[in-house]
Write a protein that binds this DNA or RNA. Structure first.
Length: 486
RNA sequence: GGUCCCGUCGUCUAGCGGUUAGGACAUCAGGUUUUCAUCCUGAAGAUCGCGGGUUCGAUUCCCGCCGGGAUCACCA
């Protein structure tokens, strides 16, 4: 197979029977990366030939997930190509034409056997501990064309199917283990096996990258390519993404989220893409952090892992933090959009950017932005809880704490509020007050931010500004005075 | 059961006949810092699934076994 000069075309062919899960998304990603790497086409094709299992809204969700990760397609359900629609239910005519071709040259036959008869034959074989491989000799060939029937593909006997799978390596299958499979169902719709090959050919697909559950049926597909006299594409069967702590495929039951949920949880598309790519793929070096473009150029089908990989939400979060820390403040700002605390609404962009700068390395997901930064936009409420925190965390009596506050307020009044000045002045307070920085700083911090954790104290004070800082310090004094000590 | 695929720290993995079996996440211990986070250093963690071969030498090659997975639909 020479594909040096062949256009690289990959496709992602989900069936709209449910939500797209992480494993499916990763398969789509691998396909997309491979096409992008060679400047080829990535096609999204809807395999909706099972009319009974269609799920309302599933195709929209699948497309939205792919888009959410930043992937685009050359052809898709919304963008037909010269080959026609990317929705299989719209392509029924082609399958009809194709099957006539195989019927005419004797490679396919009509079978009038009913599903019930088939089931009986199968259970018979099972009870006799025999492998059940359907053959033309078992078929019911007599019937009229108007009677319900299926059309099967006859698999030649004594044939070896040998091919090189791009991830699993050399495969050898014997035709005696391959069924005469149904190509056209009684309802006139094609099966996956048939539609899939017809479409891959029609769309010029060069690399079929799909879940490894298809590995066992690849001989059927290969035979179809051969029966039609077409050159088969490269097949790459990728392993599943496993649930954390298990050996089973990640599914919704394991808390697998819809991709859009990760986005609304504040994961960035780049981090999600980076993490997914690294789950079961590496470039042979220690590199783990990739930009989208780096991923595209480094990606290699042959380095996809052969066995399943467990999804690790903890590492995903770490990866997201790495991507966030790598962003410029402007970049961060442009993405922070909806995640600000409502109180931030009317604050100027420059102030918000400063807040982002101070919080960049504490942010792992954008959804944490609000709880991490609300106090930059809103004074802490003078609650009993706050009062207790002030005293418990510092180990001070209310009166003593207020003595400290008094000095701090004096210092702030006189300070030019530069970080340096604040730093020096407040440090100098420790000795006369006979206390440790840890205690004094904690007292100030809690009064200003209403919690134990925040960016550096002087950076925070500087960002907040003199007026706000003093207002909050005074408010803390009042709080300690008002409530009797317990 | 038949056929096929897979098997390195808890997890994701590097390795492609000779390595102190490397990295990352997580864990633990230090350090930096006013807190959290970040950052830095270090530690612990893998008899390379098991047993046979081949070889001077096997995690790497071969065979068997065990374990896990996929597939055997008029579902994809």
């Amino acid at each position: 197979m020479n594909q040096e000069n062949q256009k690289i075309v990959t496709r992602f062919a989900p069936s709209p029977t449910g939500m797209l899960h992480i494993g499916g998304l990763r398969t789509a990603l691998f396909s997309w990366l491979w096409a992008k790497k060679f400047g080829g086409d990535f096609i999204v094709r809807l395999e909706d030939t099972d009319r009974d299992r269609l799920v309302e809204g599933a195709s929209e969700q699948i497309l939205a997930s792919i888009t959410a990760l930043g992937m685009d397609w050359a052809y898709g359900p919304d963008k037909p190509g010269a080959f026609g629609s990317c929705v299989q239910s719209h392509r029924l005519m082609t399958y009809q034409e194709r099957i006539e071709e195989l019927l005419a040259n004797g490679k396919a036959y009509r079978d009038y056997r009913t599903s019930e008869e088939l089931d009986a034959m199968r259970s018979q074989a099972t009870s006799e501990k025999r492998a059940f491989v359907y053959r033309k000799s078992m078929a019911k060939l007599d019937g009229t064309i108007t009677d319900p029937h299926v059309i099967r593909i006859e698999i030649p006997s004594d044939k070896q199917f040998i091919w090189e799978d791009a991830v699993k390596g050399l495969q050898t299958w014997n035709s005696k283990d391959v069924d005469d499979f149904v190509a056209i169902k009684a309802d006139g719709f094609p099966t996956y096996h048939f539609a899939n090959v017809c479409d891959d050919h029609a769309m010029g697909v060069s690399h079929v990258i799909r879940a490894d559950e298809w590995l066992a049926s690849t001989p059927k597909h290969l035979w179809l390519w051969e029966a039609f006299g077409w050159q088969a594409p490269v097949y790459a069967h990728v392993p599943p993404v496993l649930a954390p702590g298990g050996k089973k495929k990640l599914s919704k039951r394991d808390g697998a989220k819809d991709v859009s949920e990760y986005i609304t949880d504040g994961y960035t598309p780049e981090a999600l893409m980076n993490y997914l790519a690294m789950l079961g793929w590496n470039d042979g070096t220690d590199k783990e952090f990739y930009s989208r473009d780096e991923l595209i150029s480094a990606f290699e089908l042959s380095r996809i892992q052969k066995s399943g990989a467990q999804f690790d939400p903890v590492k995903l979060e770490w990866m997201n933090g790495v991507h966030i820390r790598a962003m410029s403040v402007d970049e961060l700002y442009s993405r922070a959009g909806e995640w600000w605390h409502p109180a931030a609404e009317n604050f100027p962009p420059e102030y918000k950017k400063e807040v982002l700068r101070l919080n960049r390395e504490r942010l792992k997901r954008f959804s944490e932005l609000s709880e991490l930064t609300w106090f930059f936009f809103k004074d802490p409420s003078p609650t009993t809880e706050l009062r207790n925190m002030l005293l418990e965390e510092t180990g001070l009596e209310a009166q003593k704490a207020n003595e400290f506050f008094e000095k701090v307020i004096n210092v702030c009044d006189e300070s030019d509020f530069s970080e340096e000045n604040l730093h020096d002045q407040i440090y100098n307070l420790c000795e006369p007050l006979q206390t440790k920085p840890a205690v004094l700083f904690k007292l100030i911090r809690i009064s200003l931010v209403g919690g134990k954790n925040a960016p550096g104290l002087f950076e925070t004070m500087h960002a907040l500004g003199k007026e706000t800082t003093l207002r909050r310090l005074h408010s803390a004094v009042k709080l300690l005075e008002a409530t009797p000590s317990v």
